[in-house]
């Protein structure tokens, strides 16, 4: 959560603007940001890669659409008292959120509302996925979590509405891809994300998929600017995906508790091996 807030602040300073802002206002936001010194080149990179930005916008909207659909099913199971169904839907539903987390975080206060873990916020304020997770796995019942299911659904719908207005720029993508992996590094690979359901690997995979989407969209430009880096990142994605595939179980993934220390260490090192070159993407494409 701490890193999330830092990213949100950074992203906001980098010209996340909402419908209704005039183009002059947009420009002002960029110029007064901490990135004023590179504002010129930023604009040109954004211009050059405007198709990439549009494709990413579509991707994040698709993911948030799907998040609503799946959250509706999840909320239904919770409110219908079907514990098994609710547990089964919990982790797969979250993946739609985890893939676009940096964007969601850039849109204000959604992340704490949707994704706060116990202790991240005051108990009185605590809601979202993890509040329901605790009910399903600690209290072993759906009763008591119904209101949180309703709130969650309304929160993801509000998120979706704001998605429409988000203006994504290239630094946001290059930083966001790394941020997704940092999320894994700081909580998922240590099993601190899903304390009760132990479904950390679902989040892990979704964060990696979200980062990969950004890489794939930037790949042609990256290949043109720094072919070695593009190849290196691709290889490291393959290596990490290969490791993650070992933990597949049916449609999903094994519980985090089944991983041994050497497993998490190998995953963490493969993640670092990917995240370091990934963090050079921005430099290569000239942000």
């Amino acid at each position: 959560m701490k890193t999330k807030l830092a990213f949100a602040a950074l992203a906001l300073s980098m010209s996340v603007v909402f419908a209704g802002c005039s183009s002059d206002k947009e420009k002002e936001t960029a110029d007064t940001s901490a990135n004023a010194q590179t504002a010129g080149s930023e604009a040109s990179v954004d211009d050059k890669l405007k198709d990439v930005l549009e494709q990413y916008r579509q991707f994040s909207i698709e993911q948030s659409d799907q998040l609503i659909v799946e959250t509706e099913k999840f909320a239904e199971a919770v409110k219908g008292g079907d514990l098994e169904a609710a547990r089964a839907l919990y982790a797969p539903t979250r993946m739609y959120y985890e893939r676009i987390e940096p964007i969601a975080e850039a849109l204000g206060n959604f992340d704490p509302d949707i994704d706060a873990r116990e202790g991240d916020v005051d108990d009185a304020q605590w809601r979202g996925f993890h509040r329901i997770e605790k009910g399903l796995w600690v209290d072993n019942k759906t009763a008591g979590t119904e209101e949180f299911a309703d709130r969650l659904l309304s929160d993801v719908k509000s998120l979706r509405a704001l998605m429409e207005t988000v203006k994504v720029d290239i630094p946001m993508l290059t930083t966001g891809a790394v941020e997704l992996l940092n999320e894994v590094s700081s909580s998922k690979v240590t099993g601190e994300e899903e304390l009760y359901s132990r479904t950390d690997l679902y989040d892990f995979v979704a964060n990696v998929e979200g980062a990969k989407k950004i890489y794939e969209l930037l790949k042609p430009e990256l290949a043109a600017q720094d072919a070695d880096l593009e190849k290196n990142i691709g290889e490291k994605f393959t290596a990490l995906e290969g490791l993650l595939a070992k933990y597949k179980s049916g449609e999903g993934y094994v519980a985090f508790t089944e991983l041994k220390e050497e497993d998490t260490r190998a995953l963490s090192q493969a993640l670092d091996a990917l995240a370091e070159p990934l963090s050079q993407m921005g430099k290569a494409i000239g942000v």
Partner: peptide, 9 residues
């Protein structure tokens, strides 16, 4: 030589 670009590590 990249110790002063705010947009890259």
């Amino acid at each position: 030589d990249d110790n002063d670009n705010l947009n890259v590590p």
